[in-house]
Every structure is written in structure tokens, then in C-alpha cells.
Amino acid sequence: MKRAIKIIIGLLLIISFTIGLSIFFLSEDLPKGTQGPKAEELADKMLKALNKPAWDSIKVVSWSYPRGHDYVWDKENKSVKVKWDDYVVVINTDTETGEVYEAGNKVNDDDLFTTGLKYFYNDSFWLIAPFKVKDPGTIRSIVNYEGSDALLVQYTSGGVTPGDSYLWILDEEHKPKAWKFWTSLVPIGGMEFTWERWVNLHGAQISTFHDGIIDIEISNLK
């Protein structure tokens, strides 16, 4: 029995060491950028390419996110319904308060409400992050990435993990091709995902597929 325990502990140590080495060799340092008018101009060009005014004019949007997360976001009335498994969480996006339902019955469960709120923050960010590069509490700077200007956006407040940073890699039309991010939830800095399969949603350009360490596909968007 003791021998088996020692073998298990040894395997766990090897796995931990391997993961640590992977993080060390794969992580990139957060790049240093230059703030100022050029960074603001690049952000404006990106927002223009994606038609942010069209997104702002959309009153209600619904979509599905991987792992069975379904959303109906009433932007006009600042409300969102989050559904997964047997749960439905209705959130007031202004006050971050709301109601929780399990199998159609209203329940008092703060943990479920917090889970729904975190799902919404994460899953909506993968939907509309390009439109949030000038949100309150953001800092923008220009980074030279492989010979071209990229936009580094750092979030000092808001969301679930303030302090996260995202490097937007743009095409010739200033439309995002990919991003790299440095977040507290992901130990490997500079992880890259694509932004592709763009669709026109009442004039607004929305990416519905992200290729990275896993594939993230937005479906049922309307």
C-alpha cells in the first residue's frame, strides 16, 4: 500500500513539474506599448471597421456558447437571461441582482446566481470584446507586433478579473484577426485565439469562431 502511495505521489510530482515547465516555456511577457493619439486612432479604426454604432443600436441579442450556455440579452432594458442545464438566472446588468430558477421553480441560491453572472461576463466578452476597447477603466497603447501596429487594451476595472490585458492583431482593414491575452485565470501569458467567421448582425460585425488551444464557436446568433 505504501509503495502504491509513493508511486502516485511521484507521478503527481512529475505531472506538476511538467506543467510548470510548460507554463515557463510557453508564457510570453506582456508587451510594452505606447499610449497616446496613435493608439486612440487605431482603436477608433477598429471600432469603425466593426460598425460599433450598429451594435449599440441592437436592442436584444441571443446566442449560444459552448458547454450549453444560452443567452437572451435585452440590452435596452439592461436584463439578461442565462440558461444552462436545469437552471435559469435572470440578471439586471446595472445592479447585478436578479432571480434564480431551477427546473422552473424560483430558488434562493447565491452561488447559482454568481455562476450565471460569471458565465455572462465571460461568454459575452467572447462575443463583443472588440466593442469594449474603449470601456471605462481601459488603457490603450500601440505595440509593434511582427512589423505591424497592434492594439494593447488593459482593463483596470470591471468584469470578473480586472487587470487583464488583450493584444488585438488586426488585418489591413483594421478588423481583428486574433488576440493574445494575459489574464489571472489563464496561467500561460500570451495565449492566442483567432477571431474569424464574421457575420453581419444588423450592420454590426460579429466573430462567431475562435481557434486556439480549444475551439470556441458562437451559435444561434440573432
Rank of each mutant, 00 (worst) to 15 (best):
F125G: 10
A178I: 02
I15Q: 09
T93H: 01
G163V: 11
H210M: 13
D111Q: 14
P66S: 08
G137W: 08
V61Y: 01
T161L: 14
A54N: 09
Y65M: 15
V186D: 11
F17H: 01
V186Y: 14
H174D: 15
T183P: 11
K38G: 02
I142G: 01
P37K: 11
P136I: 03
K118T: 14
T114H: 12
W198H: 08
I218D: 04
L13D: 05
V143H: 01
S124M: 03
S57L: 08
V153K: 01
G33M: 03
D29I: 10
F24T: 10
S184D: 12
P162N: 07
D74W: 01
P162V: 06
I214M: 13
I15L: 15
E102R: 13
K222P: 01
L127C: 13
K32A: 12
L167F: 06
F24P: 00
N105L: 13
F181W: 14
K222H: 09
Y155N: 05
M191R: 01
L127H: 05
F209C: 10
V100L: 03
M1K: 10
L152E: 06
T95L: 13
F193M: 09
K106D: 06
L127A: 08
L167R: 00
D70T: 14
G33Y: 04
E172N: 15
I23P: 06
F209N: 10
F17V: 15
L185G: 10
G104F: 04
S141I: 00
N108Q: 15
F120Q: 00
P53S: 10
S148G: 04
L221R: 06
D74H: 05
E40G: 04
V61G: 07
F181L: 12
K134A: 01
F25I: 15
L167C: 02
W179E: 01
L112Y: 03
D86V: 08
T95G: 00
H210N: 13
I7V: 14
F113G: 03
I14M: 12
R67M: 13
V186E: 13
D85K: 15
G36W: 08
G68R: 04
D56I: 12
W84Q: 02
L151S: 02
N105Q: 15
I19D: 00
L117T: 07
Y145P: 04
A204T: 05
K48I: 11
S141A: 09
D171F: 07
E102T: 04
I218R: 03
